[in-house]
Design a binder for these strands. Structure first.
Lengths: 225, 225
DNA sequence: TTTTATTATCGTATCTTAAACAAGATAATA
DNA sequence: TATTATCTTGTTTAAGATACGATAATAAAA
């Protein structure tokens, strides 16, 4: 079926992270054709001749999740001849961060859909080299987190410091000291304090913060690509 | 000539750095065909169906420089539809560090060859998006330098601390304090002190150091890919 | 109303790391 | 022997990271 392939194919695959049910989750889809039919995979697709790689990744993501305002970054290009059985498919992998509130329409695995969120720390068997791609995405996200406030892309526009800390803890997969976290975050200038509080539940209300949109724009200049 | 292209082509381009004549230099070749005939470009080529992307980059580099023991890392994949005139050519860019002593057979630009070393801080007009690729390679090299002793790949096996500091200064493009540099480098464990000295010139001899090969091996584990 | 439980908020002491900075030691040469 | 150029070394200060304990605000329970 895949014999006698004369040339490479180039695809895009996208690792999509969100925080849902207090877990860092990744979007996976069940393959409905060979190879690896029935196995879970990350969303992917082909590049149109008129679009950039970034545009292709954004389009593929929008087709699956219907979200626009996302953090999307090229990760790495995987081209091992053995990564795809009986064909030479090179894939340019991206990773993305999306807000949970924007993807509530994507159901959970239990409901038997072929699109699901899954805890990144207990992945099922994955097709191709997709487990490796997800692990590298996580690694890169951690790297980014040290220099760049990407975590706001996982949160609602207004959030408490505890919620922000929780995103850090889920990404880094380790607990952080509350006081030191606040000191560090507030010593920077990326947060603006609102005069609103969580009116929600029991217990003491927490102040809501926003990321400074101007600062986020200027920081983007720091990233080379 | 390039009309009616139906599919993408995928190429490899390699930015090769070395330190030569006390300058950080990059390997460029003069194009002998369209597009951009006569313009300088970085070495590149096609990927064979049986080889990994890393292997392809290493092969292309060896064809141009005839060196094997190099630092080679995938940089980024550039796929803007407009980057290549009248065709859709996506390129997976790599960058490499080679020792000057290994590439002495590659002549300098003055001799009219179509392969030349050129100071990375004063590049000529380049074909395609190659200037951008070189600049990003430099940026990435600086990033790597902070965490990982890649600079040894630019040096002879045994070197003085002053020589090592000079490679840092050329890559970072700024002077460093001698005492702080030594303190920082020696506080790590990557260097082993030999009992040899530069017997060379006038003035006080300097002790020769080597990178610890075991440590370099173990540090490699820190890099994800 | 008082008590209790829970979360939010604030501060200080300590250690580590980065930055700034000057003088003596060694070998060749004159 | 004096000169010269390079190699080598240590201290002080500031800033940032880490560890750790106490208080304030609120809602629910008593």
């Amino acid at each position: 079926m895949f014999n006698e392939v004369k040339t490479h194919e180039l695809t895009i695959d996208v690792v999509v992270f969100t925080i849902k049910d207090n877990k860092l989750q990744v979007l996976i889809t069940r393959r409905n054709k060979e190879p690896f039919k029935g196995r879970w995979a990350i969303p992917g697709g082909y590049i149109r001749l008129s679009e950039t790689l970034d545009d292709a990744a954004a389009r593929i993501l929008k087709e699956k999740t219907d979200v626009d305002d996302i953090y999307l970054e090229q990760l790495y290009t995987f081209g091992d001849p053995l990564r795809y059985p009986n064909a030479r498919v090179v894939t340019c992998a991206y990773f993305a961060l999306v807000k949970a509130e924007d993807v509530e329409h994507i159901f959970t695995r239990e409901q038997g859909e072929d699109v699901a969120w899954h805890n990144v720390y207990s992945l099922p068997e994955m097709a191709f080299d997709h487990k490796k791609i997800i692990e590298y995405s996580l690694y890169r996200t951690r790297e980014r987190l040290e220099y760049f406030p990407i975590s706001y892309k996982l949160l609602k526009d207004k959030f408490t410091l505890t919620e922000l800390q929780r995103t850090y803890e889920l990404i880094l997969n380790k607990p952080l000291d509350k006081r030191n976290f606040r000191k560090k975050i507030l010593s920077g200038t990326m947060l603006i304090e609102t005069d609103e509080y969580t009116k929600s539940g029991s217990k003491r209300p927490a102040k809501l913060y926003m990321f400074d949109p101007d600062l986020i724009k200027s920081k983007k200049g720091l990233m080379f690509v």
